[in-house]
Computed example of a mutant assay.
Amino acid sequence: MTNPFIDLLAQKGTLLADGATGTNLFNMGLMSGDAPELWNTDEPAKITTLYKGAVDAGSDLFLTNSFGANASRLKLHGAEKRVHELARVSAELARNVADKAERKVIVAGSVGPTGEIMEPVGTLSHALAVEMFHEAADGLKAGGADIGWLETISAPEEYRAAAEGFALAGLPWCGTMSFDTAGRTMMGLTSEGMVDMVDGLENAPLAFGANCGTGASDLLRTVLGFAAKDPARPIIAKGNAGIPKYHDGHIHYDGTPELMGDYAVMARDCGASVIGGCCGTMPAHLAVMRDRLDSTEKGEAPSLDQIVAALGDFSSAGDGTGEDVAPKRERRGRRRS
C-alpha cells in the first residue's frame, strides 16, 4: 500500500509529528469545558494558527482539531449532529495549511476515544462504536486528510472498533494508545499486548504506538516494550512535555524544550520513527526537537537508567509486564524545570 505518510517516512526515515492541541488552544482563550472542535467553524483563524505553529516549527505531520468529534462527546455540547461537518472542516483548514507549506507535510485526522465504556463492561455496543468512528473518519477524508490518526485509546475493543470505522471510510490510519496505569493502559493492555493486537487486525494501522500517558520517561519505556517485539510496523512516540503541575488555577507541564529535545533523540534510539509531543508540547519544544533530530545521528537504544538520568524518574516500578523494573536511584544529570 502506498500513501503520502508511508512515502514521506520512507524518504526521511524519521518524521517529526506535532505537539499539543488543547494546551495551545487554552493559551489562545479556549475555556475549560468548551469543545475545541466548535472552534473549527467559530474560530477558524485560531485553528489555522495552531496548525501553522507546528508546521513552522518543523513538523512533518500534524493532527487536526477533531479529537472529540464524535456523537458521544459532542452530545454534551448539543452538537452531536455536527460530527461529520466539524471533522471535515478541521481537515479542510489543515489541508490549506499543509498545501501552502514549502515542503511535504502530512495532514493526520485526529480521532479520540468516544468517552464511553464498551460492552460487556459498559453499555456502548461494538456496532455503535464502529459507526461513531466511521462518521468521524468519513468527515476527515472528505476534508482532505491524508490519514486518520487514532489516539489516547485505553481499551483494545475500542481500538478494534476504530479500525473497522476507518476501513468503512476507506481512510488509511495510524493509532496510538495511552499507557498511563503502571505501564499499562487503563484497561490493562501492555506494550507487548498492543503489538499482538495490532498484528491481528484485518485493517491494521500504517503505524502504531503510544501517546500522552504520564511523563516522557514512561512513554519511552513503553516504546522499548514495542521494539522488543520486533514489530512489522513503524512505532509512534508522542509523549507529554514533562509532568503536569497545578499552578495559579491552571495545569502547566514542566518539560523544557531542551528536555523534549533529549526525549526526541532517545525516542528514535528506542525504536520510534514517528516522534512528536502530546500535552504541554508547544512550538518552542517542537523547534528544538526538530533541530536535535536533524543534528544527531541515531544511536543505540538507551538503558532504563539512561532514560531516568535524562528525563526523570518513572512513575511506576515496572512497565506492566513484570520485567524491566525501573532502577531505584536518585536523579542526576539534566532535571526538569
Score class of each variant (00 low, 15 high):
Asp218Gln: 03
Gly170Lys: 05
His134Ala: 11
Asp56Ile: 00
Ala35Ile: 03
Thr21Glu: 04
Arg88Phe: 00
Gly320Met: 08
Asp7Val: 10
Pro172Trp: 06
Met266Asp: 10
Ala142Pro: 07
Ala91Ile: 06
Gly115Gln: 05
Thr214Asp: 14
Ala136Lys: 07
Ala108Arg: 06
Asp180Tyr: 02
Glu151Trp: 10
Lys52His: 12
His77Lys: 00
Ile307Leu: 13
Pro327Phe: 02
Lys52Leu: 13
Leu259Val: 14
Glu102Thr: 15
His250Trp: 14
Gly322Val: 05
Val274Ile: 06
Asp294Pro: 09
Ile6Val: 12
Asp18Ile: 06
Gly58Lys: 06
Ala182Tyr: 07
Lys141Glu: 11
Ile236Val: 13
Leu76His: 09
His250Met: 14
Gly175Lys: 02
Ser32Ile: 15
Asn70Gly: 07
Trp149Asp: 03
Leu171Thr: 08
Asp180Gly: 11
Gly175Phe: 00
Leu124Lys: 00
Phe5Glu: 03
Arg184His: 01
Gly255Pro: 03
Asp248Ala: 14
Asp34Tyr: 01
Cys279Tyr: 00
Ile235Val: 11
Ala79Gln: 07
His134Pro: 05
Gly239Met: 06
Leu168Glu: 15
Ile236Phe: 12
Pro327Ile: 00
Arg335Phe: 15
Thr152Leu: 01
Ala94Tyr: 01
Gly209Ile: 06
Leu16Lys: 03
Cys278Pro: 04
Leu286Pro: 07
Ala108Thr: 09
Val89Asp: 04
Asp56Cys: 02
Asp230Cys: 11
Asn211Lys: 01
Tyr253Gly: 04
Ala227Gln: 11
Asp230Trp: 07
Glu258Asn: 14
Leu61Trp: 03
His84Pro: 08
Leu150Trp: 11
Asp42Pro: 01
Gly320Gln: 07
Ala232His: 12
Leu8Ala: 05
Leu140Asn: 11
Thr23Glu: 07
Arg82Tyr: 05
Ala91Met: 04
Gly213Met: 12
Lys12Leu: 01
Phe179Arg: 00
Phe314His: 12
Thr21Ala: 06
Ser125Asn: 10
Arg95Pro: 11
Pro327Tyr: 05
Glu192Arg: 14
Met118Arg: 06
Thr41Leu: 09
Glu92Lys: 10
Ser59Phe: 10
Gly193Leu: 13
Gly143Leu: 04
Val97Leu: 01
Asp99Pro: 10
Ile117Ala: 07
Ala272Lys: 07
Glu102Tyr: 10
Leu15Pro: 08
Glu85Met: 05
Arg332Glu: 13
Thr190Pro: 05
Asp254Ser: 04
His77Gly: 00
Ala264Leu: 07
Thr49Gly: 08
Pro231Leu: 13
Val288Phe: 13
Val55Arg: 01
Ala91Pro: 07
Ser295Glu: 10
Arg88Ser: 03
Ala145Glu: 06
Trp173His: 14
Ser72Cys: 09
Thr185Ser: 03
Lys81Thr: 13
Val288Lys: 14
Leu16Pro: 02
Thr181Ala: 14
Ala317Phe: 11
Ile235Ala: 08
Ala79Met: 05
Gly183Asp: 13
